[in-house]
Amino acid sequence: MSALERLAKMDRRVMYWAMLLLIALPYAVPLGLPMQISTYSTEFKTTIDALAPGDVVLVSMDIGLGSVSELGGGIIALAKQLSAQGVKVVAVSTVAEGSLVFDQYFRPVLTSAGYGYGVDYVNLGYAAGDETMIASIAENMREVYSRDYAGNDAASLPLLQAADDYSAYRLVVTFDAGTATGFYARQWQAKYGTPVLSVPTAVNFSYFYPLYQAGSVEAILNGPRGCAEYEQLIGAPGLANQGIDALSMGQLVVIAFIVLGNVAFVGERLRRRKQ
């Protein structure tokens, strides 16, 4: 077997090791690779800037814990911006683990900012039903959530008494590893005109981009890269910025192996043609 053939039939484990080592490298030795801030992230931040103290925002944690590595930085950054502006937060989730994500990443920022549970923020937790659930909470939140995530009677929470349907919410922000952005675009934006902001995982960005272009989604962050940009925009580089070098390295590895694959393929073809 020629060297080119061996290269073309490279064992997948070689690629996996290369990926692992090169992604780990920036964590050991921070590379400080440069990054340009996109207009999407600027728009996202500006939309949140427009909120006034006391406004209520629906934060929908539509991701599992597995997606926190991608969007965790954005979650913390949003919590920081909202709490700095005195905006109240009601959290729901279409994913069972979403309420845990809120508790572990969003809630600590709010509590350290002096937010009071039930008055300034509420975590209602997960409810089954996907789009049906999202349509229902727009009409009557307490009918879907009779109790919050901690088991408190929803009717006893002052924030929920004041914000029981779509009319009380200035906007919706969804952290989305599924299709919740589409659900909110149809059930909240199209029906009631409530602006929807989306923070999708990287792979879902292209999927929701048409909704953003059509105006159904007011602003959008481009996955972990968008989260890193957003962190920089609010002046609080954190989790997302730590991972951004690794993200660049990971994508470079993919490109490098595509180039290698093509070198092997074209080289082998030329060799056979000569023969």
Binding site: T94, D130, T179
Partner: peptide, 10 residues
């Protein structure tokens, strides 16, 4: 798995 089961647009 996609985005949801029979309660969703999936």
């Amino acid at each position: 798995s996609g985005s949801g089961g029979l309660n969703s647009d999936s």
